[in-house]
Design a protein around this nucleic acid. Structure first.
Length: 295
DNA sequence: GGTCAGGTTCCGA
DNA sequence: TCGGAACCTGAC
């Protein structure tokens, strides 16, 4: 399948021109996905994980190149948002916003990942009131116990478990993976999808507000998690998740001492969506990453 | 050992 | 409609 080993046993690779600043390590560690692991291939450091159900390795040999297994370039570029018209997105940001400009300049190689909707929904259900390290641990545990194993670069990686697999596991089994009270939401959501009571494809026909409401029917999915799914899983750039980090940086950097104390969450949400524009979610990612790494 | 973490739900006013 | 408590668990 076009993956002929070269003399010496080297794997055939594809090179992707990122067309501008790109930072693979930051993209994979910016709180969007939680399962990529480091490894090595032919002595070179690589990231190893799954794009949906397919195992891949990724590496960045220089600032404007990403390499991956031959034949995977298109899928990888799509997943990593490399094919996004990034300059055009930036052009929609508010021109006089020095805070956002600072955040973009701090990490210009950041991108929004396009991840599978189910994987995104399930992962963020397990993220509530958890630190990133723990979300990661839960995600890997679920994959190892209920996901399909794949071999890549001499390591075993696991696809995210299907709704049917998690439904069959039962709530008690999920709880045993360290999920705590989040097990209820994950299990009920997986069960509903596995039974056909709901279908994530229904999201396609809905506008942003309707899609948000649709997602919030699931137990354990509130406004913040619904917005994460819309942004990271559905590519809806208008969605603007406000978590504690975003709440912190928005209040501190955009409002005076009095206003920042009295502003209600709903008002902050509405202000952010209007202020940052049609690609507010993209702006959110720069600000979030900036806040998390520098506060 | 206490506190806190990328939220949501439930309950009472 | 709104504020506050409760919720599992692991890391510092």
């Amino acid at each position: 399948m076009g993956r002929k080993p070269k003399p010496g046993g080297n794997v055939k690779i594809a090179r992707i021109d990122t067309g501008g600043p790109f930072d693979l390590g930051q993209v994979l560690d910016s709180g969007q996905v939680f399962h990529w692991e480091t490894g090595s291939l032919d002595g070179q450091p690589v990231w190893i994980g799954c794009l949906g159900d397919e195992p891949v390795w990724l590496a960045q040999p220089d600032p404007v190149t990403v390499v991956c297994p031959a034949g995977e370039a298109a899928r990888v570029a799509h997943y990593l948002g490399i094919d996004e018209p990034i300059a055009r997105l930036h052009a929609t940001f508010p021109a006089d916003d020095a805070v956002l400009a600072e955040a973009v300049a701090w990490c210009p190689g950041l991108r929004l990942i396009r991840q599978p909707v189910w994987e995104c929904l399930a992962t963020f259900i397990t993220s509530s009131l958890k630190q990133v390290a723990h979300i990661r641990q839960i995600s890997l545990t679920l994959r190892r116990r209920f996901g399909v194993p794949h071999q890549i670069a001499g390591q075993t990686v696991f696809a995210y478990p299907t709704p049917a697999a998690l439904a069959a596991a039962g709530e008690a089994e999920l709880r045993a993976c360290g999920l705590g009270y989040r097990a209820v939401g994950l299990w009920r959501t997986a069960s509903a999808l596995a039974a056909g009571d709901a279908d994530l494809a229904e999201l396609d026909a809905l506008d942003d507000a309707e899609a948000r409401e649709w997602l919030m029917r699931f137990h354990g999915v509130g406004e913040k998690i619904a917005n994460c799914v819309l942004l990271f899983g559905c590519g809806r750039h208008g969605a603007f998740p406000i978590d504690v980090w975003m709440d912190r940086i928005l209040r501190e950097r955009y409002f005076g001492p009095r206003k920042r104390k009295t502003l209600k969450p709903r008002e902050l949400q509405a202000w952010a969506e209007a202020h940052f524009g049609p690609h507010a979610g993209y702006a959110q990612q720069y600000l979030f990453h900036f806040a998390r790494k520098t506060f």
